[in-house]
Design a protein around this nucleic acid. Structure first.
Lengths: 238, 238, 238, 238
DNA sequence: AATGAATGAGCGTTCATTCAT
DNA sequence: GATGAATGAACGCTCATTCAT
């Protein structure tokens, strides 16, 4: 999916020439303006607490203008997920090409993850809130994005196993969530701290935990239970 | 579960005599009835999508009756967090007394965590959704609960370090989130899968990951970065 | 269809006891209050020009109250047609039992028609306006009511033919409309005159026209074309 | 159809020179284009349910363009009545010159009426709906048009009385409505049937009803329809 | 002249909350 | 205590109209 395909769909009442002249996702387009304003307000107040008027005010447009670019309020969130968020997560895949070995790739992935979420705190806040809601106006999109991420992690771990640097007795569907969950929580903590410290610096110590765990390998590991045999892989349901 | 402790806090609009005379069942149970009905509906539809009428219908009472036990809609959520959720998390502390060593204690904690959330899926759904929302009607409560949990983990890890079974070069505030985050994500996956498989069985393999990580310790660890020295612990802001 | 069946459906959030105590269609029930207020405003401004607020103000209730008794704005109109109007038209059927011969029955029907519409001018205005609109929120209801009326006329005319006082070479589906149309236009003229004169007094001269036509029977009717043979009866479609 | 007569009245916002220079086609037709598009949409959806955008789309022009030719949405309806409808009704007057006697003239009038409304079903639908609405943006126009029609009928009937073929004891203002109403209802039935059958063929049987009524004037005669020589066929379909 | 993006007043509808019974 | 009818502020959304291009 390229950026263009999205831009062409969005401002559905505008002529092609104006679309073309504003195709950059950065700004200039009123579609972008509104979308970013919306995310900003969603981040501050939550989706359901946000009114169209607040978004319009934030974007500096009239209420009605929003409906020239979005079908309704829900659609703003959907657009956010199908465009902005998906793009960020798609970008994570690039990290597979950057490291030479699995550990480097994992580190790059996580660093990139933290970088992107630090760069766009509003996106991060909305993403975090919406993905844990039940109603899921964006169920499909979240599922897809989530799968995208977990697949990348799985690929990296499999490579690590092939390289011999990662254990072979891993319950993969658990590992994926173990990593995603920890990163997610680090981000969550940062978000609710007000984003005051550097998030990216957490990447290296976190990778260290992922690889080595918290156990002391010098010690005889008498207390550590053997890895339970992976049950049937039914954690992939969502 | 000590009903009294909650009764004394919650229905501040009721006269004491009626509280005392009815704590066993008749009226005390109506507070409970409504609270549980509310959580059930919140779990299904989300807090903001739930109407007072829906709660009343679920509880089998009139709309107005809810206002005899709760100040307003928000208060229901607050009560849920100050009573029900806090109680669950307080219970986790018991696990500190049950294992003989740190690893056992950690396993007990996580198993208990998964057990409780599996036992009460509605609570889990509401807890998960609300803790990631921005508005945070229950900011204070969530912070407190979260701290409670993180403190328990910290105590366990510190004990593990004293026992020599856990690494001493751990960035503690990160470790706490690393563990909480992974457990959280496992639960989240389970929740969105529809709760169809056994959550508690995830405990052991997860503990294994926490302790040993995903790295192959037999291998020369040339690729693993040295643990970055923990920066000043500023992730504890919230 | 009796009156009760309608009353029982309408105020759907009220308990039976209150329904029973207000079952009279006259007033007392808030449902009636609102319905009559609505018709009054519809009559004055037209359906689409009428706002819920105007109806509420006319009825002396809050806007929201209307939605306790009606599903939405359209439903008010539907209720008006399924209840009030249908009742009036059902009443016309009684006239079949009152006259001894066909001409008397026709006169009674038309007199009753004019009486009812004169008695409730608001009903008449709304009925006249809505039955000629395209959108037809109440397509089904209008069709049914209209058929009810046309059938009564047909019965009367058939009786008249049996009695020998009415021509046998009548194109029945045309006759029905000929009569209904003329009565309708008389009412329409009265409505737009402001309802200043007595409508019922039009009944007798109108009946005379129906029966005798405008032609002078003393004259040799050389100019009158023979009745065209009735085409296939496809005017009954609506 | 004299286009000029309407051009001079209607587009009061256009400069005279452009009117003169373009009366043939280019600009004059855009006014027409929009007006016809509007009537088409009004016919389908009703006036208040129609948006300017829908009219613009139907006409193939921009929304704003409509305001170059019409003051506002209401004005489109006003123009329709002051131009198009009035023109049709004015045309009815021609029929006074075509028949040799009153009955012929009446038949010609009614046939013409049915022809015109059958020819332009959209006009018929809008005319029928609007004339029964209360708001009456076009009160004055409707009254004028209506009077025009009723006057024609009155003249014909008076002639018929002078000729001795029509009764002298007629309540004229009633007779006029009696005829208009019946024709109107015949058209209304046709409109709501979807316009599937031939409307004009209703003219002769209807005239027969107007003249002779439904009564059996010669009780002795069983078969009324003796063959009178048909008048010269001047009702050519043109 | 023609456009169509932009506007914002106004509408139908919802729902948390109140209060008379 | 318990009820649920009543309230009315507030929201999402529409659409006639304007105006810069």
């Amino acid at each position: 999916m390229n950026e263009c395909s999205f831009i062409l769909i969005a401002p559905f009442r505008r002529l092609w020439r104006s679309v073309i002249s504003t195709r950059g996702k950065t700004n200039g387009s009123k579609y972008q303006l509104i979308l970013e304003a919306a995310i900003k307000v969603f981040a501050r107040r939550g989706f359901y607490q946000t009114t169209i008027s607040q978004i319009a005010r934030e974007a500096g447009v009239a209420d009605g203008t929003i409906y020239l670019y979005f079908k309704n309020k829900d659609d703003i969130l959907v657009q956010f997920f199908t465009y902005k968020t998906r793009q960020v997560f798609s970008g994570f895949r690039e990290e597979l090409n950057r490291g030479v070995n699995a550990v480097e790739k994992l580190r790059n992935l996580i660093r990139r993850h933290l970088e992107e979420f630090q760069r766009d705190r509003d996106m991060a806040l909305v993403y975090h809130a919406v993905t844990r809601q039940q109603d899921r106006l964006v169920k499909k999109e979240i599922k897809e994005i989530s799968k995208m991420y977990l697949d990348i992690v799985a690929e990296i771990v499999e490579q690590g196993q092939a390289e011999g640097v990662m254990r072979k007795d891993l319950y993969m569907s658990l590992v994926k969530r173990y990593i995603l969950g920890a990163v997610d929580e680090i981000i969550n903590t940062w978000l609710h701290s007000g984003g005051k410290y550097d998030l990216v610096s957490m990447a290296d110590p976190l990778i260290d935990l992922f690889i080595r765990g918290i156990g002391n390998t010098d010690e005889i590991e008498k207390n550590i239970s053997e890895a339970a045999p992976p049950p049937s892989d039914n954690t992939d349901k969502s």
